[in-house]
Design a protein around this nucleic acid. Structure first.
Length: 674
DNA sequence: GGTAACTGGGTTTTT
DNA sequence: CCCAGTTACC
């Protein structure tokens, strides 16, 4: 698929016009299922056919999966490694640049990359000195994770703290000055310990691009920049794109403002809408011929699609009429779970494999009841989204130990590994770290003196771990280092976790996966930026003959499609989420999420609305309330659906006499002999 | 002084 | 189910 002429032949007129557009800045407004990826790949191929060197084409995406997918399709099959298109996620490309020039960014060569959980941990250790612990004058202080959210929101939207607080966290306003102090401290802390968080990766790249000397050099590396999913850029990423192509020459942005669903991490579709202001000569090409869904599904999609001036778009179906979406009203959530199972099985009987069907949920816990029902009926499923493998405690332990080896100045990693040992809490761990002077050279060598601050009964166990980590640091290959780190943790893990054997098996796979990386640093960065969804994910794809129903969050389902899609919980408070209902922009985002969810379906779309919801309350009986149908299913939307009611739950029999006992009595009479 | 064990309150989405 | 605050132990 690398002959440009052959590739172009497979495109429709709009796609071909986009793929072969000459010159200035181009925005491809690509509705769901309109062949966006194919068009972008074709454009890369066409650019090459026009004489551009592949290595001077930069392709930016938001997920590793999208990057790998497109690069695999866009690379010349006969090309050598030196002549490849440069591509990856914004964060991965930023990391590559910073890593290659770490000294210019005043970073150690093996700097650690903090994932969001690490960031929250750092803030957790810093916040007590800023009066952000416990209840302050009767008010509850923001939790560490909330502080991290606020910090990142400020950075990624280039917005001041007070504005972020009043817009999104009004209840934190009383702590504005404490938060300001905490964030100042946090930045200094990261710099002192050679730490870089996700936001820093982008900030450092932007700073280099904006620099009078470094900027032109970095800009000059590329002739063409292709950006996928442009509606998901945040303010910093929008700046990076602008700095990469200041006059718009060679810039192609692909996106759909109606599919922007990442506002919570600072993205804003306004950046896509503002492209025509940034570039007066911007050309807009719409892709609206949909190759994914049936007409009857798209009619609903077009009704719920939010439209903006100048970027209106209506999808037209290339795959025939199909059946209208079916809205199933269910008595309660248990009925909904049974109903989904029944319909999944019915579709299965009718020839759809389980893996041709997906249940898409707004929030990971919306499928809790369903998962019980699926297990009870023996329907196999895999779940995407929600908790990640790298968030499991033992995995974090292992990663922390690896980070000590890669970057001994990583205070947070030390803190975690020391506290892993029974009897060592925050205070003792802090004392040990202070004695080691981890910011100085070779802290592992100072262990013997640091041991003095521990009570005798703890010193030997902790010492054994530290000494083994020291040995791991001496080893050359990544594989040996990973194995040595795992060995170092053997005893403390065995003491901490009841199911240590199972957790060890996970870590062995993790160590194996890391062994493939050129260095421990690269393995760690890879895991932070692209965390495996599950332990089995590390061992490669599950067996091909396995057939699993897919449960996924709508966010994780972006860009994917299934012949049959089930959308549960279409009641106000769940879809749209009540967390988002406080601001108008939050509600708009929920509407876009619903649009994304609906447009995942190829043939059949089932919508479920439980009308009675249970609330689990501690200390009192479970309560229930009656739910409103989702406000997204207004008159116009409902007109595109067929309606039905789930079979009501079977009535509970209350027999006047014990039924089984009477059967037994009757049976007993049969055995009476003579 | 410092840690573990217990208890009570809150729970979105993820590069 | 995770986190923060409290109490009970070393």
């Amino acid at each position: 698929m690398t002959d440009p002429a052959a590739v172009l032949d497979t495109l429709n007129d709009d796609q071909r016009r986009a793929a072969t557009y000459r010159g200035g800045p181009l925005l491809i407004l690509a509705g769901a299922g309109t062949g966006k990826t194919g068009t972008l790949v074709a454009r890369a191929a066409w650019l090459r056919s026009q004489g551009l060197q592949p290595s001077r084409i930069l392709l930016l995406t938001f997920t590793r999966r999208a990057a790998d997918d497109m690069l695999a399709r866009a690379q010349p099959s006969d090309g050598d490694a030196a002549d490849r298109i440069v591509g990856g996620t914004f964060h991965a490309v930023a990391h590559r640049i910073i890593r290659a020039h770490s000294e210019a960014f005043a970073l150690p060569p093996e700097f650690s990359v903090l994932d969001p959980a690490d960031t929250a941990d750092v803030l957790d250790t810093l916040r007590d000195v800023h009066g952000l612990v416990g209840t302050d004058s009767g008010r509850r202080t923001p939790r560490a994770a909330t502080c991290a959210e606020i910090y990142s929101r400020c950075v990624s939207t280039s917005t001041g703290l007070s504005e972020v607080l009043s817009a999104g966290y009004p209840w934190c306003l009383p702590f504005a000055s404490q938060l300001a102090g905490l964030f100042t401290d946090f930045v200094g802390y990261k710099r002192r310990h050679g730490l870089v968080d996700f936001d820093d990766l982008l900030l450092l790249w932007r700073a280099a691009l904006a620099d009078a000397a470094a900027g032109p050099a970095l800009r000059g590396l590329f002739d063409a920049v292709l950006v996928d999913e442009y509606q998901d850029v945040n303010a910093v990423q929008a700046d990076i794109v602008r700095l990469l192509r200041p006059d718009g020459e060679g810039l192609t942005c692909v996106g759909d403002d109606a599919q922007a669903i990442y506002a919570f991490r600072g993205a804003d579709p306004a950046h896509l809408r503002a492209l025509s202001l940034t570039y007066a000569d911007l050309t807009l090409i719409r892709l609206s011929r949909n190759y994914r869904s049936r007409h009857a599904v798209l009619r609903l999609a077009n009704v719920i699609r939010p439209q903006h001036d100048g970027l209106e778009l209506a999808l037209t179906a290339e795959r025939g009429q199909g059946q209208p979406p079916l809205l199933i009203r269910c008595h309660d959530e248990a009925t909904q779970a049974r109903e989904i199972c029944a319909r999944v099985l019915a579709e299965h009987e009718a020839g759809a494999r389980f893996c041709d069907q997906a249940v898409l949920v707004r929030s990971a816990n919306h499928s809790d009841l369903l998962e019980l029902e699926l297990s009870a009926r023996g329907i196999p499923y895999v779940k995407y989204g929600g908790l990640r493998f790298t968030e499991a405690a033992h995995v974090k332990d292992f990663l922390a130990a690896a980070r000590i080896v890669a970057n001994p100045a990583d205070d947070l990693a030390w803190f975690r590994v020391l506290r892993l040992h029974e009897g060592v809490g925050p205070v003792l761990a802090r004392r040990v770290i202070d004695m080691l002077e981890i910011a100085g050279p070779e802290p592992l060598r100072r262990w013997p003196s640091a041991e003095q601050v521990l009570p005798r009964r703890l010193a030997s166990a902790v010492g054994a771990t530290i000494r083994e980590l020291g040995k791991a640091a001496e080893l050359a290959s990544t594989a040996e280092r990973a194995a040595a780190i795992l060995a170092a943790l053997h005893d403390p893990l065995a003491a901490r976790y009841a199911d240590a054997a199972a957790r060890r098996a996970d870590l062995e796979r993790l160590a194996d996966a890391a062994a493939g990386s050129p260095s421990l640093h690269d393995a760690l960065v890879q895991l932070a930026l692209d965390p495996p969804v599950s332990a089995s994910d590390l061992a490669g794809r599950p067996r091909l003959d396995d057939d699993f129903l897919v449960i996924s969050t709508v966010h994780s389902a972006k860009g994917l499609e299934w012949p049959v899609v089930h959308l549960p919980q279409l009641v106000d408070g769940a879809v749209p989420s009540d967390m988002a209902l406080t601001t108008p922009s939050g509600l708009e985002e929920e509407q876009r999420l619903f649009y994304v969810a609906v447009t995942r379906a190829r043939d059949r779309l089932f919508l479920y609305a439980p009308l009675r919801m249970h609330h689990h309350r501690r200390g009192s009986d479970d309560r229930h309330s009656y739910a409103q149908l989702s406000r997204f299913l207004d008159r116009a939307a409902l007109a595109q659906c067929e309606l039905t009611d789930a079979v009501p739950p079977r009535p509970v029999l209350v027999p006047a006499a014990p039924l089984a006992a009477s059967v037994d009595r009757d049976l007993a009479s049969l055995w009476r002999v003579g």
